[in-house]
Amino acid sequence: MFDGIINWVTDLMTTLGAPGAGLAIALENLFPPLPSEVFLPLAGFTASRGGMSLLAAIIWTTAGSVVGAVALYYLGALLGRDRTRAIAAKLPLVKVSDLDRTEAWFAKHGVKAVFFGRMIPIFRSLVSVPAGVERMRLGVFLLFTALGSLIWNTVFVLAGYFLGENWTLVETYAGFLSKAVLAVVAVAVIAFVVSRVRRRSRQRV
């Protein structure tokens, strides 16, 4: 499956050049399991072989990141605060007050969340949804999404460009980062569930 994805992206870049790399990254934003940590170095490697210019690779992949993020932003806006609260109220172990605290946090730190979130695996895509739910100003969202994406994409495209045939090393080390993020998320979820179960147990007593 992984080889199939690589072959598909390679064909896309061969056929369309830099716009193909942008399309791949836009799809990666919409479907987080698709690995930008692979697509971006591959775009850099393709640029090193003359398949596209290095600048075009960075510009088009950043444009693809913004397009994918905007689609998820509008998904969050379509979902809206009322629907989000209704869903939260039906979830076990989740209180609407938890959502209120999350909204307050995002209202205060939303810009930083969007900017730095673009450089964190998994959250790169997910952070766009609460931005839409909270109706962050679109201009602000676009600006900090573009800046964060530009930094992330440039690092990985340049890595693939300079590593050449060894571009796959980038995915190997980036994979450790992704696993670390997943581990932190898993620990946080477990801690939340345990604390909420204990609180309910004390209330029953």
Rank of each mutant, 00 (worst) to 15 (best):
E37P: 04
P35Q: 09
A56V: 00
T15A: 08
G20M: 06
F39D: 13
A56G: 12
L54I: 12
G44R: 05
A57L: 00
I59W: 09
M52I: 09
G17R: 06
T15P: 10
L12E: 14
T46D: 00
G17K: 01
P32F: 02
P33A: 06
A21G: 14
E28N: 11
F31Q: 04
A21Y: 02
G51E: 11
L54Q: 09
P19C: 00
S36H: 03
T15K: 12
P32Y: 04
M52S: 15
P41D: 02
I25K: 01
A21C: 11
G17F: 00
R49T: 14
L54E: 01
L55S: 11
A21D: 05
I25E: 14
F45P: 00
G44S: 05
F31A: 12
F45Q: 13
G17C: 07
G51Q: 08
L42I: 11
E28V: 09
M52G: 10
L55Y: 02
L27V: 15
L23F: 13
I25C: 07
T15F: 01
I58W: 00
S48A: 15
A56Q: 12
R49C: 02
G50T: 02
W60P: 05
A18Q: 10
A57K: 01
I58M: 15
T14N: 15
L34C: 03
M52L: 15
E37D: 13
G22Q: 13
G20W: 03
A43K: 06
G51D: 03
F45N: 08
S48V: 07
F39A: 07
E37M: 14
S36R: 03
V38D: 01
V38H: 10
G51L: 09
E37A: 07
P19Y: 02
A43F: 06
P41F: 05
L12C: 06
L12N: 10
L30W: 03
L42C: 12
E37G: 06
F31V: 15
E37T: 05
I59A: 14
L27W: 09
F39N: 09
F31Y: 15
A57G: 04
M13L: 13
I59N: 00
I59P: 00
L40R: 10
P19S: 08
P33Q: 03
A18H: 08
P32C: 04
P19G: 11
W60R: 01
